[in-house]
Write a protein that binds this DNA or RNA. Structure first.
Lengths: 346, 346
DNA sequence: AGAAAAAATGTAATCCTTTACATGCAAACC
DNA sequence: GGTTTGCATGTAAAGGATTACATTTTTTCT
């Protein structure tokens, strides 16, 4: 329990009013609606404001105007650097509108046994951008409740069949691009490294891969599917599992760059050469992808843009504009580097 | 300019009071000081609160108690994943105390032409954890002003000679560890990849390297110092520069893992083998370090712990406890992997 | 010049809680 | 039994801004 108390406001609007010889209403107007006071008065007020370095108390202001001018971003796990770029994009989208950004992760929310909805209900944030598609049903019910409807958008990940507005990358198309690239190089024998069970991205990327393979007359037997998280270490582990199989794939589709890098690391340990023996493609195009050894062929998704668009969507939803479309799908592209090559003969 | 306005609070303390048949004072006490109301009354109030899912309006509350229950973290650049782990640590430190976390980066602060001090003065946050050691002098002056004194702590980076409380890793010792390791492997010819000019970490790590080399009777001529940022691409570039020199170093000290990974990537492009021809050591031990090729020998700093301790320091400073020490230096350790080996003969 | 319209400013209510102080009432004491 | 003490609760005053409405001053128009 906190016990401190700060004299946060040394000086208030009343003091400014007194010093400038006007009423508090005029001070308020001079600051928020400069056009509605005479130039002389404004100058006079501003001089006093500057001199004393006065700032409006945002609590009093928010209380009165019933607006927080802040948005909450909920990340599954703050420690995961994957999200930082999206957060930066959200910040980009919020800054021009003058909104602040609050950040929490699902883990610490649970630790405090509170739902992100609390923040909305407690009026601390005007809206929520949720990067966690795996929220418990109870929380999703809360989010769907009328009093927060129109104040939530999901980005990157999303929960199924709930009808929330979503901004995401085209995960299916991404995997299709990867498959087409590899098929073009003569690969016929594929494996897939998936993300965590139950995750939407895992599912979409798997389905995208399967659809594109089917199109090429190929299929993905269960024995060729490994993974279980987006983390490096599971890519490393999965590489081992895959190579222990009697027949080996020549191409490995990874659901994240981290998986791909771990996978390549694991393959190297086993003496398997990338791309001569096995081609590997990642997903995301994180900064390191271009500099790992070998440089990683991957699917680029513009995470920063994704964050920015999510923020913009939320903003327009907050200002009452109906959303043109509830599902926004951003294009992805393939970046061919050197972790993929023609399938080995035989 | 925002124009929306939300009926953020559907239901207020007055409604709860009416429905429970008590006064607002009693409702408030039932929620914040449960011991000060009779068990029956409390149960009755709680029932109504639960039923209507009431949350106190945090603005009204903060206005009254003059406390935000939130802390602002200022990052140089939100897009840089290096900071995510520190942020997670800060969250860890804040959560038990029930404080929220606001995040901004220096870039968007500048874009909005406002200083982080604004947030403190506007009472939006009780304290500031600053991860940016390169703030302009004007802002540092503001931070040093009496009304925010005791509400700021620097973490990871810090400004020089200002006397702010700082939590940091032992950068000098880290570099010394790296040098000793390499000297032990027979290396005599060193190069250093530095971070951005003017950065404290750049300076501390350079000085640490130079001191440790001096101790071993070695030195670092200016021609052996390259870099200029912590980014991968500069590591890549610097590798090229270094290898174009008439005589080549056998060991490269990098001021970040990103530099090291870029450097190894650049060396590989040039056909220089790591660690057979050149040993490379990084700094930070980011997640990828263990899985890059070759796995990176590096200096581990516990970023999460650093964030947590910074948060705890701030918290105790906010509650008026005088800080035992203004400078907290966390230990680092060397993690030997496979990017370092005995110096090549001759 | 006088009336009407527009602009500038002021007064005071309002946003929602918390909490100092007052009140009432029951238990504890001598 | 009559004070004293202590608990449970209520009343009402902050807390610092915004803004509807009222008022005054200035401009514009005929």
């Amino acid at each position: 329990m906190q016990t401190y108390r700060r004299d946060i406001m040394a000086i208030g609007i009343k003091d400014i009013a007194r010093l400038a010889g006007v009423s508090t209403a005029t001070v308020s107007r001079a600051l928020s609606h400069p056009g509605r006071v005479s130039p002389e008065t404004r100058a006079q007020v501003m001089a006093v404001v500057e001199e004393h370095d006065y700032r409006v108390n945002s609590f009093a202001r928010s209380l009165r105007v019933r607006r927080a001018d802040a948005v909450l971003a909920l990340v599954p796990n703050l420690g995961n650097p994957f999200f930082s770029e999206i957060i930066a994009g959200i910040q980009d989208g919020l800054t021009p509108a003058g909104l602040d950004l609050l950040v929490t992760d699902s883990l610490s929310q649970q630790a405090r046994r509170q739902s992100p909805v609390t923040h909305l209900q407690a009026a601390r944030a005007d809206g929520l951008i949720c990067l966690d598609g795996a929220l418990p049903a109870g929380i999703l019910d809360d989010l769907a409740a009328s009093d927060v409807a129109g104040r939530v958008v999901f980005a990157c990940e999303w929960p199924d069949g709930r009808g929330f507005p979503v901004v995401r990358s085209d995960n299916r198309a991404g995997m299709a691009l990867a498959v087409q690239h590899l098929v073009g190089l003569g690969h016929r024998d594929f494996a897939l490294l998936t993300g965590p069970e139950g995750n939407v991205l895992t599912r979409e990327r798997r389905e995208g891969a399967e659809a594109a393979l089917a199109q090429a007359g190929l299929s993905l037997p269960p024995s060729r599917i490994a993974g279980g998280s987006f983390e490096i270490r599971d890519g490393f582990r999965a590489a081992g599992d895959l190579m222990r199989m009697p027949s080996r794939p020549t191409a490995i589709l990874c659901s994240s760059d981290q998986l791909a890098i771990g996978c390549i690391s694991g393959l190297s340990e086993l003496g398997v050469r990338v791309p001569q023996d096995v081609s590997v493609v990642g997903f995301d195009d994180i900064a390191l992808a271009a500099y790992s050894r070998p440089p990683l062929t991957t699917i680029r998704q513009d995470r920063r843009r994704l964050g920015r668009i999510a923020a913009e969507r939320l903003l327009s939803s907050l200002s009452g504009k109906p959303l043109a479309e509830t599902l926004t799908t951003l294009p992805v592209e393939i970046v061919v580097r050197r972790s993929t090559a023609a399938a080995p003969a035989g």
